[in-house]
Structures are given as structure tokens and as C-alpha cells.
Design a protein around this nucleic acid. Structure first.
Lengths: 208, 208
DNA sequence: ACTAACTGCAACACACATGTCGCAGTTAAG
DNA sequence: CTTAACTGCGACATGTGTGTTGCAGTTAGT
């Protein structure tokens, strides 16, 4: 996939495997600061020579793909450990939110790579999307989501909220706190449930 | 600001002004297809020589700034014509949503330029942000927004929803339809108001 | 019509990231 | 210990975007 010598031929030597890991982590950090950073910068951050980067990842795009792949793998794990298709919808959704929130802060830059081609349908693994959709559908069937809402919109809103939360969230704040906020907003919005139309349509103090 | 001859010295000739407009529009369209597109591509799309682009915008970054500036100007107009500080909060918010939704589809690429440095605080004009915040605050005072919600979060959610809607929305669909959807989701979320905890925590059909 | 301004064209210098290679030294694996 | 594999280093070729300049031709403004 991402690295040049085909895995099928022979397992990589231990230090080579470590180099790959170091490069990926370094790339994440460097690209977080500057998405158009040089591979030279990535190499030095990883503590390897630039040539080594090219040995492990044939091109810049190849490295990019590897980063996206990392996200999808971690996301898959998060989905799996949230038991999205066995646990009660509400708890599964909550678990997934917490995990994704953490994933977002640790791999900001790589995630941005995904968001950019979000319109292209490329980026996020379709399998991950369908798992999420299945969970949302199950949530709707269980009465958690309003019947009229269509799943793609629900998914979009959910991911948008997570994105927003991870953007605002400072690193020392707990993920669960923000997960609560996301869930609350997702399900109930930020409006007051007992709308008082008289007040809402009243003129503001300045004009009255 | 954006163009090389200082405006203060003498007004630009009519065709020069037109060139600037053509270039900005072309840049928007070209960058929408490929954010890292060449200035050559922008020039040909605008029907001018590449040198002319450099005459009007000293550097690539300068062009970028001009695009961001365009957005902020149009956003300012949208805020003004929505009467964000005189109209009832609900209608002002709705008006603003419709306008922004259209702005988002016509200037996708330029808006993305803003989103990228969203973390840097640069990008969106602080003045526009404070006007929006004021509207949200007024909405909260009027009882439209739940009392506990803090404004930055409200703003973030609002903009995230608009972004999501503009991403999904196909060009032929009406802005008002999506504005309704955004407002609905913003205020009430996508959850069922009458949560049935028994059902939500029930095991899924597969395990029962 | 006259003039200043703007444009197209074409060439140039420049910087810089990218990708490739070979060699010598080091490291992990059996 | 022996060997195959991996690394660092340095050099090279290459492509490509960028920004600049000069000149001749065209256009808008008065």
C-alpha cells in the first residue's frame, strides 16, 4: 500500500517498521503546523534522512494516503470497540463520540486531509461510513432520532459537531465533557424547547 | 490592499477594474476545482495573461487575501441586509442563513481559504463575528436559545451546520429549504423530543 | 484626436520541492 | 558471527511555479 517493498515478499526489519511509524507521527505533527511543509521538514522531525522517507513512501501522495489510512484504521477500531451494532444506540453513539473526539486531536492534520476530498467521496473508508449509518439508522428505529430525519443529514450533522467540538476543545479538557455537549446539541439542539413566539418576534430593546 | 497601484493615487481605469473582477471570479472557480492550481490556470480562465494577474495582485498570497476579503465584504452585506440588530432574532437568523447559504455555494473555494486558518483567528473579519455573536446573544435574551448555551459554541454549531448544509446541497435546490433544515436542527437537534429510555437502552434485534 | 493607462506576449532569473542513485557505515536477524 | 537489510550522506537531474521586465499594440478617458 503505502510503503515500497511489498509486504507480501518478506516482513520488514524491526527498525524499518519503526522508521515508518516515526515518519507517520512526525508527518502528522509537521503537517499540523503547515499542511504544505516539505518532506525535508518531516524527515528531520522524524529523525531520519529525507531519502529514508522516500524509501518508505514512494511519493508525497503516498505518504498522504498512508496518513489517511491511519485515520481509517483507528476509526475502524473505535467503531469496533464502541460495539456500534450490539450496544444500545445511545451508549454506542456516546462511546464513539468520545473515541472520535480524541482521535481528532491526536491526528488533526491527517484528518484535514480527509476533509478536503470529502466532496470527492474519497477519504473516509466507505465501510466506516456504512457502519456509522447503520448505527444512526438503528438509533432512529429505537426512537432516539426523530423519524423524519434522513440518515445522510444526521451523519453530516454528527460529524460536523464533532469537528467543531474538537476545534474548540483545548487539549487538557476531558473528552467526555465535550462528548456530552455534542450529544446534547445533536439530539436537542441549542434552542429553548418552550419557544415563546411573542418574545421571539418582539422588537429588540433598541428599537422599542 | 490587494492590487498594486494604490487606490488613493488615482481611480483605476474601467477595464482594469473589470480585469480584477474577472480574475477574482476566475480564481474562485479554478481554485474550487483545485486549490493548488497555477496562477497560469487562473489567468487563462479569466481570459487575461498571467502577467496581468501579477500586475493586479503582487503575489499568490495577495490574491488569496483578496478572495478572503471578498467573502468578508459579502458577508458584511448579508449581515446588514438581515438587520441583525433590529429585526426579531428568529427572522434575522433565518435571513442570514439563507444569504450565507447562497454565499457558500457561489464562493466555495474562497471560503475554504478562510476555514483553513480558522484556528489562527485570521480569516473571518472580527467585526462580522461580533455582529453574529451579538445576534446570538440577543436570541438568547429573547428566549430563542437555551439559557445555558455559551455563545462561542452556539456560533460554532451554527456555522458548522451551514457548512454542512452547503456541502450536501445541490445547486438547484432552494436555499430556503436548507435554511429551514439548518434552523430546525440548530434549535431542536435531530433527536426525538419524547425520549423513551426503555427503547433507547434496549438491546438491538440481533441480540434479542 | 491625444494621451495616459492597460494589456498581451515572450523571455528571463530564481527558488525550491521532488524523486533518484550510489556508496559507505551500521544494525538487526538467524 | 555472518549476512542481508536498513540508514545516513551527498550529489544530481528535473520539473515547475513564481515574480520581473521590456516592448509593442490597444483601449479608455477628456
Amino acid at each position: 500500500m503505502s510503503d515500497i517493498p511489498h509486504r507480501s515478499s518478506r516482513p520488514l526489519r524491526a527498525d524499518a517498521e519503526q522508521s515508518i511509524a516515526r515518519i507517520l507521527i512526525a508527518a502528522e505533527q509537521v503537517f499540523a503546523a503547515d499542511p504544505s511543509a516539505t518532506l525535508e521538514a518531516v524527515a528531520s522531525a522524524a529523525g531520519v534522512a529525507r531519502a529514508t522517507v522516500h524509501r518508505r513512501f514512494s511519493s508525497r501522495d503516498d505518504l498522504r494516503d498512508a496518513l489517511v489510512n491511519t485515520i481509517n484504521t483507528k476509526l475502524r477500531d473505535a467503531i469496533a470497540s464502541a460495539n456500534t451494532d450490539t450496544a444500545p444506540p445511545l451508549v454506542a453513539l456516546y462511546q464513539l463520540t468520545v473515541a472520535t473526539l480524541d482521535l481528532k486531536v491526536d491526528w488533526r492534520a491527517s484528518w484535514q486531509l480527509i476533509d478536503l476530498d470529502a466532496t470527492d467521496q474519497r477519504g473516509i473508508d466507505p465501510s466506516n461510513i456504512s457502519h456509522l449509518d447503520a448505527l444512526l439508522q438503528r438509533s432512529q428505529d429505537a426512537g432516539l432520532l426523530r423519524p423524519g430525519i434522513d440518515i445522510p443529514w444526521a451523519r453530516g450533522v454528527y460529524m460536523a459537531l464533532i469537528h467543531e467540538a474538537s476545534t474548540i476543545r483545548s487539549e487538557d479538557e476531558s473528552a467526555s465533557h465535550w462528548a456530552n455537549r455534542v450529544m446534547q446539541t445533536l439530539l436537542s439542539g441549542i434552542g429553548d424547547n418552550e419557544h415563546n413566539l411573542e418574545a421571539l418576534l418582539a422588537q429588540p430593546p433598541t428599537s422599542d
